[in-house]
Structures are given as C-alpha cells and as structure tokens.
Amino acid sequence: MRELYEKLKTRFPLGEFTDQRDNLGFITVDKDQLRPVLYHLRDHEGFSHLVLLTAVDWIEEDRFQLTYLLSNRTRSVDVGLRVMLDRGEPVMETIHDIWPTAATYQCELREMFGIDFPDSPGVMDDFILEGWDDLPPYRRDFDTKKYSDETYAHREGRVTHDPAEYMKKQLYPDEV
C-alpha cells in the first residue's frame, strides 16, 4: 500500500496516510484534488470499482469526513480516500459522471447528513425519509431518542436490562 501512496505523492499533494492492512489503506485528499486522484486511480491504477461513499461526522473538530472506498478487483486491493469538509458549509462536488452509482450514495448523504452535492441527479429526491422536517438524523447533534420519544407513541412496560448484570443474576443468583 505504501508504494502506491509514494507513487501518488509524486503527482498530487496528498495528506495523511493510514496503512490499515496489506490490501487496505486510507489517504487524505484535498477537496479540489479529489477528482484528478479518482481519475488517476481509475484509469492508471486499476481501481475500477467504487465500493462505497460514506461520511463521518467529526463534530468535535467541526467537520465532515467523506470516504470514497475504491477497489482494484484484479489485485484485490482497496484504497479509501478521505475528504474533509467544513461542517458549517457541507458542499461537495459530485462524482456521478465517473461512477453513476455515486448518485445514489450522494442522495443518501444529502438526506442523512445534509451534505449537498449540486448537480447530482435526483439528489433532492426523497430517499428513505419521506417528508423529513428535522435535522438530518445521522448528524451527531441530532438526538434520536428524544425525537423518537416525541414522535412515536410507545407502549408502557418496556424494561431494559444490562445484559451482563442480567445474565449474572440468572445464572449465579447466589453471588449477587
């Protein structure tokens, strides 16, 4: 993985590198460098498959991390590209022209994280949350329990046990 990183580094300004396994590594890329890197990986390094596009909410650092996971099918090697976005203004360039499947991921990210991808086809369509009117639910400042309690009626009598304590009580009642 490291030689791929070194090779890329001669061409593009790259950020931090994480060597996860022999066949998996993550590279941090600048927002405006992403497209040329993707093109290069697809056309010259054989990473022909976009496995997934997902996001992480780093609320403490006030940014979103987009992860583009690419796969080289012939060599069974995966590489992930990390792109950091400003949490206050989460807008990213669409890549649906490179991999059409990306449009679906971008649609989902727009709905779940509120990250906008202008010009991505159908990005403003309802995906799973039809008629959602609250904060995007995957953002970490969204309190899902509070929302659930306020929105959905719940049945009385639900009890929650700590699994470890509960099993201890069941199996060794004398020791408690």
């Binding site: 899902t144 929105t151 719940h154």
Partner: peptide, 16 residues
C-alpha cells in the same frame, strides 16, 4: 411491532 424492540429509540420506525 409490539414495543419497538431493538429499534425502540430509532428516528424512523414506529413502536406500537
């Protein structure tokens, strides 16, 4: 379907 089960605090599933 009874009380939400493991999705009792989900933002998107009904509980009753």
């Amino acid at each position: 379907t009874i009380n939400g089960g493991m999705y009792w605090d989900s933002y998107n599933t009904i509980k009753k």
